[in-house]
Amino acid sequence: MPTLIRLEGGRAVIAARDPFAEAPLDGPLPDGPAVLMPLARFQQQGPALLDEGLRIGVLLQPEEAVEDLAYDLPRLSMVALNLPKFRDGRAYSTAALLRQRYAFKGEVRAVGEVLREQAHLLARVGVDAFVFADGTTPEQLEAKLSLYRHVYQAASDARPPAWAERRS
């Protein structure tokens, strides 16, 4: 069972258990109160399942457009972004759009080849849950996230950009 680390109130915390059971593209749904499913399956069954009260997370591949989810986002509990390679930067734009354009309030989870050295950037674009591929601990994640004392840009987090800090 891979470790899920969530950012909660500025702290990195290991989730005691992950409520989301992963559903494949087709076949029977796993039991449980929450399901993580691929976009294609969500587009077929998702709205009906949401109506039944199931909590749903959608797994987006890097080439999949977040725009396709826009209508249903307010009812989704979680969006998982797959990074098949850590060098594939598309998830960063997807996360930024989720938070900045669609004001998505649920969990944005990074899965795949998620490594510590990219964590601070992922957090800035709006990722608040990590399934690390390199065994990064909550302490190591917190250290990485606090490494830069200032930032130059506004992003999905609340950090003031340098120009705003200079005003104060």
Binding site: Y92, A96, H120, V125, V151, Y152, Q153
Partner: peptide
């Protein structure tokens, strides 16, 4: 220069 430095969204471009 400032805006592009350690840009969170654009550090892993194609």
């Amino acid at each position: 220069r400032q805006w592009s430095t350690v840009h969170p969204e654009f550090s892993y471009l194609p």
